[in-house]
């Protein structure tokens, strides 16, 4: 079971108090975009064994969205951070680099 800490209200709880919101840091392609871009935005997802970034919502608590970095094999949470960002903050990347040297996820590493 995942133990997440909501960065908005500071509560640490297990995953049933939260709701998963899918892959993080997607770039939205809407009208005017090419078919390939739209398909990528709509369907193409990472399925990593290891480091992964996701959106979560503290649905039974403060109700806010946030991001979580976790490991899909060990269920370790590397950290949670604000939803108001388009890429993982440097301190989260540093934590992951210490624990999983040489990691990469999409364009991030």
């Amino acid at each position: 079971m995942l133990i997440l800490t909501c960065p908005c209200c500071g509560v640490t709880s297990e995953e049933t108090e939260f709701h998963a919101g899918g892959e993080a840091h997607l770039t939205r392609f809407g009208p005017e975009s090419s078919d390939a871009e739209f398909e990528g935005y709509l369907f193409m997802r990472e399925n990593p064994k290891g480091v992964h970034f996701e959106r979560w919502r503290h649905v039974y608590g403060c109700g806010k969205w946030f991001h979580a970095a976790r490991c899909t094999t060990t269920l370790e949470i590397f950290g949670t951070y604000t939803a108001q960002t388009t890429e993982p903050p440097q301190e989260i990347r540093d934590i992951i680099a210490r624990k999983r040297p040489g990691w990469s996820w999409r364009a991030f590493s």
Binding site: V11, S13, T16, E17, V59, Y60, G61, C62
Partner: peptide, 10 residues
Amino acid sequence: FRRTRMAQVP
């Protein structure tokens, strides 16, 4: 003060 889940409801 804590907001949470009780069985199936908030």
